[in-house]
Simulated scan of single mutants.
Amino acid sequence: MTGRLEHLLGISEPIVLGPFGGASSLELTALVSEAGGLGSYGLYGYSGERIHKTITALRARTPRPFAVNLWLPTGDEVVPADVDLAPYFDALAPLYTAAGVSAPEPPDAFLPAIDEQLSAVMTAAPAVLSVVFGVPPAAVIAEAHDRGILVVGTATTVAEAVALDEAGVDAIVASGAEAAGHRVSFLDAAERSLVGAFSLVPQVVDAVRAPVIAAGGIADRRGVAAALALGASGVQVGTAFLRTRQSVVPDAHRHAIAAAVDTGTVLTRAMSGRMARGIPNRAMRTIEASGLIAPFPAQNWLTGMFRAEAARRDDGELLSLWAGQSAALATHDDAHEVYRELQLGLPH
Results as ranks from 00 to 15, higher is better:
G42E: 05
L342T: 00
Y41G: 01
R277W: 01
L9Y: 02
L164M: 08
A215S: 10
A256P: 04
A127H: 07
V131L: 09
A252F: 04
V128S: 11
G223I: 00
G75Q: 13
G37T: 08
L5H: 03
E34P: 04
Q117M: 14
G316A: 04
E309Y: 00
E77S: 11
Y41F: 13
L321C: 02
S193E: 00
A335M: 03
T154G: 11
L187C: 11
R269D: 10
P19W: 01
S12D: 15
P19Y: 04
L38I: 07
A258M: 07
A197F: 00
L302T: 10
S40M: 04
R4D: 09
G45K: 09
A180M: 12
A67N: 03
P14C: 07
V132K: 00
S47F: 08
A124P: 10
I257G: 05
Y88G: 06
A81Y: 03
R50Y: 06
A161R: 03
R183Y: 02
E116L: 13
D262G: 14
R307L: 05
A189Y: 07
V135G: 03
A289Y: 08
G75I: 13
M305G: 05
R221N: 07
G231Y: 02
G37Q: 05
I51A: 04
T239G: 11
S47V: 03
D115T: 15
H7C: 13
V235S: 05
R64H: 06
